[in-house]
Amino acid sequence: MRNVTLIDLFTHPITQKYLKRSGMSHAISVANYAYSLALKSGVNPDLAAKAGLLHDIGHYEWYKNGEWDYEQYRENDIHAIKGAERAHKLLIRLGEDPRDAKKIALAILLHTDSYLPEATIKQNPLQRVVKQADELDEEPGGRHHYRKINKELAFQKICILDKKIEDDLLDFKKTV
Rank of each mutant, 00 (worst) to 15 (best):
F172W: 10
F10Q: 06
L39Q: 06
H79W: 12
K17D: 12
L169K: 13
G58C: 11
K163Y: 11
L91S: 00
V129Y: 03
A101W: 00
I121V: 13
K102Q: 13
P125R: 11
L109S: 04
L170N: 13
E71A: 14
P117Y: 10
S114Y: 10
G95H: 07
E135T: 04
L116N: 09
D113M: 04
I160W: 11
I165E: 00
Q132K: 10
G42K: 00
G23Y: 01
T112W: 02
K131I: 01
L53T: 02
A31N: 03
A34W: 08
K20S: 15
L19F: 03
V129P: 02
N3H: 15
M24P: 00
N44D: 14
A133H: 06
L109E: 00
K164R: 12
E75T: 09
L161I: 09
N3V: 12
I57E: 01
T15K: 02
Q16A: 15
R128C: 02
R21P: 03
N32S: 10
S41I: 06
T5F: 15
E139M: 09
S41E: 13
T5V: 15
Q156I: 09
V129C: 01
L37M: 06
Y33N: 06
N3Q: 12
A38G: 08
L47W: 07
S36E: 07
Y60V: 13
P140C: 01
N3R: 15
T175E: 11
R86Q: 10
L109M: 13
Y60N: 13
P45E: 13
L91A: 02
S29Q: 13
K174S: 12
L126N: 02
L91E: 03
H55E: 11
L37W: 05
G142M: 10
R147G: 03
I108K: 03
D69I: 11
Y60M: 12
P125A: 07
H12I: 08
E135C: 01
K148Y: 11
Y63H: 12
P45I: 05
E96M: 04
R2W: 11
A38T: 03
P45K: 12
H88R: 14
A105K: 01
N3P: 02
V43M: 09
D167E: 14
N3D: 13
D77K: 07
F10P: 00
A31Q: 03
L110H: 04
E166D: 14
A49S: 14
E75N: 08
D46A: 14
K122I: 07
V30S: 07
L153F: 11
R99L: 14
E85N: 09
L126K: 01
C159S: 13
V43P: 04
H79R: 08
K122W: 03
I78A: 11
W68M: 05
L109K: 00
Y115I: 05
G52P: 07
D56P: 08
W68R: 10
K174P: 01
Q123K: 12
H144V: 00
I158W: 01
E67C: 07
A27N: 01
A154T: 07
A80D: 03
I149P: 06
A38Q: 02
E85A: 13
Q132R: 09
N3Y: 15
R93A: 00
H59S: 09
L39T: 03
P13I: 05
E139V: 00
I104T: 03
F172E: 01
A87V: 10
E138D: 08
L47E: 05
G58R: 03
L110Y: 06
D56L: 08
K151Q: 15
V4G: 04
K40P: 00
M24S: 08
P117L: 14
L9V: 15
K173G: 02
